[in-house]
Each structure stands twice: as structure tokens, then as C-alpha cells.
């Protein structure tokens, strides 16, 4: 039963690069959109707030699968130009997760104590200086844990790209391996799960580093434990990730947005 493991790992590995590319691409776009629309939701201008709100509600409130199929199959008909599957996938992941991320950014910025705004006014900083130099840097440390959850969700969401023929890990398993080794489906899918798990752990590791950095930025002492044990993390954080996995992303971002 374990004869083919080498072959399975090798075949799935062929999809690894595409999964990583789709995930990283999605993370970059989602992060940019999160900040743009998260800050736009806090704008003093009603119109700007309204536009941001529409973006968030649209991409959060429609099915990810349908978004994907729409961009890949419907949009080309409208614009008369076929988009590369990977590009379409990255764009949808970015737009979709950017909508959740915008709520994270908004919540984190709002969690910075009012006293900090008042300190800025007393020192006569402009609203832009205030945001860029004082408020945003302080909000980063609040954003990192929910973004960690979000990015892991995004990684897992990249499996949907199999539907638009991106040959990522799930595609390799489903279209290449299962068709030939259907009796070993359990082994194949277990290997795929482990691949995703390792990638998720890598994301968490990177985000922990980012959290330590953001914490140092606001003068928080790094925990006494080493990085590796920090990865195992405080109970709360681990539980939050599990919750997120169970409850789905909307729940997580609501909670992080509403913190304090």
C-alpha cells in the first residue's frame, strides 16, 4: 500500500510551486487591498467610505467559487480576452481575502487608543502624519494574528483553483493521481493534507516573526521563550486558528475587527 508514496509525493510536489505562487500572489494583493480599503472605510469622506463598503460587501458576500468561475469563464466573453488561469486565481484570491483583510485593518486602526490621536493633535500633526507615523505603526501588532488566520484560509482557498485548471497540488492529486490510483485515495489525500499543513505552519512561522517585530515597534518585550516554542504559541492563538478553521473566515474577521 505504501509502494507508490514516492510517486505521489513527487507528483503533488509538481503542484507545490503553483500553490505557493497562488498563495503568495493572493497574499500580496489581499494585503494591499486590505490597507487601501480598510483605511478608506475610516475616511472622513462619505463617498470613499461607501466605495470601500461596497467592495467589502461584494467580495465577502458572494461565493468564492462563483467569483472564480466568473472571472475565468464569464469575464473573457465580456472583454474578449482569455486570462491565464493562475492570474485569474490570484486576482480572485486577492480580491476576496482583501475584503476580509480590510475589516482587520479597520478594526486594528480603531483599536488604537483615542489618547494617541489626541496626543497627535496636541502636537499639531496633520491627519496624514498622524495616521502614518503614529496610528498605523501601533495598529500593526493587532493586525498580525488575524492576518495569520486570513493567510492560512487563503492558502486553503487556493485549492479551488483546481476548478479553473491551475495545476496546483489539489489538481495534481485529483486529476493526475486519483484517476490512476483510485484505490489509494486515502494515502494520496493524506499526503495532500500534510503538504497544506506544512505550508500553513510556514505561514504561521513567518507571521510570528512579523508579530515579534511589530511588538518591538511598540516597545513590547518579546516573550522569553524561543521562536520555535513561540510557534507552538499561546493557547489563545492556537485556539483562534482552530476556531477560524471550524467556523469559517467571516466569523474570525468579525471577531478580530471587534476587538477592544
Amino acid at each position: 500500500m505504501f509502494d507508490n508514496i514516492g510517486l505521489f509525493v513527487e507528483t503533488i510536489s509538481k503542484g507545490l510551486l503553483l500553490t505557493v505562487e497562488a498563495t503568495l500572489g493572493g497574499i500580496v494583493i489581499a494585503t494591499i487591498l486590505s490597507f487601501v480599503f480598510g483605511l478608506a472605510m475610516l475616511s472622513r469622506l462619505r463617498l470613499v467610505r461607501a466605495i470601500a463598503r461596497i467592495y467589502v460587501e461584494f467580495w465577502r458576500g458572494t461565493s468564492e467559487v462563483v467569483q472564480l468561475l466568473w472571472i475565468y469563464f464569464a469575464l473573457p466573453v465580456l472583454i474578449g480576452y482569455q486570462i491565464m488561469p493562475l492570474v485569474a486565481g490570484i486576482v480572485v484570491l486577492g480580491l476576496n481575502f482583501g475584503a476580509y483583510g480590510a475589516e482587520i485593518v479597520r478594526g486594528a486602526v480603531q483599536s488604537v487608543p483615542k489618547a494617541q490621536y489626541e496626543g497627535c493633535i496636541a502636537l499639531n500633526l496633520t491627519p496624514a502624519q498622524r495616521m502614518r507615523r503614529v496610528i498605523l505603526p501601533q495598529s500593526l501588532v493587532e493586525m498580525v494574528p488575524p492576518f495569520n488566520n486570513l493567510f492560512i484560509q487563503l492558502l486553503k482557498g487556493s485549492a479551488l483553483l483546481t476548478m479553473i485548471t491551475v495545476h496546483e497540488m489539489t489538481y495534481q492529486a485529483r486529476e493526475v493521481l486519483i484517476t490512476r490510483h483510485v484505490s489509494q485515495a486515502a494515502t494520496i489525500w493524506t499526503i495532500v493534507l500534510l503538504f497544506y499543513l506544512v505550508l500553513a505552519i510556514l505561514i504561521t512561522f513567518g507571521m510570528r516573526l512579523l508579530e515579534l517585530w511589530a511588538g518591538r515597534l511598540v516597545g513590547r518585550k518579546p516573550p522569553q521563550r524561543g521562536l520555535l516554542s513561540a510557534l507552538r504559541s499561546r493557547r489563545g492563538r492556537a485556539a483562534a486558528i482552530t476556531d477560524a478553521a471550524v467556523a469559517g473566515i467571516g466569523h474570525t474577521s468579525d471577531r478580530s475587527g471587534g476587538d477592544r
Partner: peptide, 26 residues
């Protein structure tokens, strides 16, 4: 200028930068 009961220093800046930020920018 104003000094607050709870100080309201900027925790993301060292002491020196707390003192130089506004004079430079403002």
C-alpha cells in the same frame, strides 16, 4: 501645548523620536 494625565507618549517611538517627531514634521 498640552500635557495629559496619562502622558500619551507614542509607544512606537523611542524617547528621542517622541521629542523630535512633531518639531520636524509640524
Amino acid at each position: 501645548g498640552m500635557v495629559f494625565q496619562q502622558f500619551n507618549l507614542f509607544p512606537n517611538m523611542k524617547v528621542l523620536q517622541n521629542l523630535t517627531e512633531a518639531p520636524i514634521r509640524s
